[in-house]
Design a protein around this nucleic acid. Structure first.
Lengths: 268, 268
DNA sequence: CGTTAGCTTGAATACCTTCAAAGTAGGTGG
DNA sequence: CCACCTACTTTGAAGGTATTCAAGCTAACG
């Protein structure tokens, strides 16, 4: 129903989440390619280092919770979800990684993966043996710094997620979610206003701390309000600015401002 | 109504968050001391490296949002809160750091602090110039690895926070919060069943995504139910096991199990 | 001793969830 | 190729839980 013309794309496929599908495509990437993929500026290019690619079909897991940690992964193409499984076996969606995102960072502490990552579409990922990375980091300061930076980017994202969950209500959470997706697609060179939701309503609900029914209802309401047009997995953003400003925050009576005021007075 | 006897504490002060109060205490810490503080096992002990201490009074900020990043901090004593301020100036509490916790990690990416940390009591923190750390990491593999590990610990914590916020309701969130506090105090050698809440109800509410009224009501209800005894800031846990198991999760109808099943079938 | 910040509690409301049912799409096998 | 199955989605109605607004309270501080 919604065909994206392929001539706008730098990649093989016409859709961001269908990268390498029926072909073997590229099997190895250089360090330089890796760096440009994750968005860090390092200009060293050791020819002897190469990272292997690996393919996954929708539904397959890149790694599972509890599995011994030894690799990081970088998404080359496709769309995935990161989930945490609690003691009762309930699935909690933590993120929807896509091209350029790093997977498995949570395994560094504790030597086992704390989450698991499931492919939502056919995916291609780069495999980064952690030992190789640390060895490279030792020999190159800039690379080590970039590595730290990427790890922290994840932390900042997660913090913003907590803020979103804590302070916003359903409509605003979903609005923010859509804006976030739009911006990420846009950054990868795809349309910011038309894209496919590769995850289920249940996944979105889990991610945003809502039920799938609330997600469905809210999307319908936004459609009715003319902010978006949604047809199952196909989404068109019709008023991005309205979605951006739709953050009906709780009044959140600001508690103890006195403390800060006292502090400023004390320190000056 | 509820008096906490001070003779149950092993430390100088009767309260974990009042560590160094009216005295200058220690001014420098060795690398060895730093490592034992953050809980990493590194046995090198370079005499020439030392980290300065710094004192803060309640209400003072260790650093603020947007301030150029150049230092990490480790809590030596006291109790703090990490907050994020959104565009509208609303404060969102992200964490309550205490002894051994590292502050400022979110500043590594972006070269500016993404959060700010406010002292809730008198505090003493170690100052770790980031450049010193990275330099040390270059010369010592184990230290570098430990550094990564600590950064990732934060990420895992934040992920668990997201899960808590998404999946639990008010009572369970507060129960988990209390258990978490209890365990942290316990790990530091203080009583797991009697402690002081240094933060306001508003802070707790912000942290847990609830209003201060809901926090207050829920604490009262738990008191009435005999799980805890609460008198303003003084808290006694009377039934830790009940608090632990009080996780009335949402049914969270588990969505697409088929995907995983399909994947397992495909990969086998 | 008055003021202020923080805490508690009550009552009404709004929002989201829960339960339920029906419709839709994609894949599989006959 | 069609029918069927399953998973996913939508929508309605009822109910519950947390918020909002409001008032009174306590404790700390100047």
């Amino acid at each position: 129903m919604l065909k994206v013309p392929s001539f706008t794309q730098p990649a093989v496929s016409s859709d961001p989440s269908e990268g390498a599908w029926s072909r073997t495509s590229k099997l190895w990437s250089s360090l330089k390619e890796l760096c440009s993929l994750v968005g860090i500026a390092v200009e060293i290019d050791l020819e002897e280092v190469a990272f292997q690619h690996m393919q996954f079909k929708a539904g397959q897991r890149i790694f599972t919770i509890g599995q011994p940690f030894d690799m990081l992964y970088v998404v080359y193409s496709g769309f995935l979800k990161t989930v945490l499984i609690d003691e009762q076996g309930h699935e909690q969606v933590l993120a929807f990684p896509m091209k350029g995102d790093v997977l498995g960072i949570d395994g560094i502490h504790g030597k086992r993966y704390a989450t698991e990552v499931v492919a939502l579409t056919t995916c291609e990922v780069l495999i980064l043996p952690f030992k190789t990375l640390t060895a490279l980091g030792k020999s190159d300061y800039a690379l080590e710094a970039a590595f730290h930076s990427v790890m922290c980017r994840e932390l900042v994202r997660e913090q913003n997620m907590v803020a979103t969950l804590s302070a916003l209500q359903a409509e605003a959470r979903i609005a923010r979610f859509l804006v976030q997706l739009s911006e990420r697609f846009s950054a990868l060179g795809y349309s910011a206003s038309r894209f496919t939701l590769r995850m289920t309503r249940s996944d979105i609900g889990s991610y945003l701390g809502l039920t799938l029914e609330t997600v469905s209802r809210t999307l319908s309401a936004m459609d009715a309000a003319g902010l978006i047009a949604v047809d199952i997995r196909t989404l068109v953003i019709k008023d991005l600015e309205a979605l951006r400003t739709l953050r009906r925050l709780r009044p959140q009576r600001s508690g103890n401002e006195h403390a800060s005021l006292r502090a400023q007075a004390a320190s000056s």
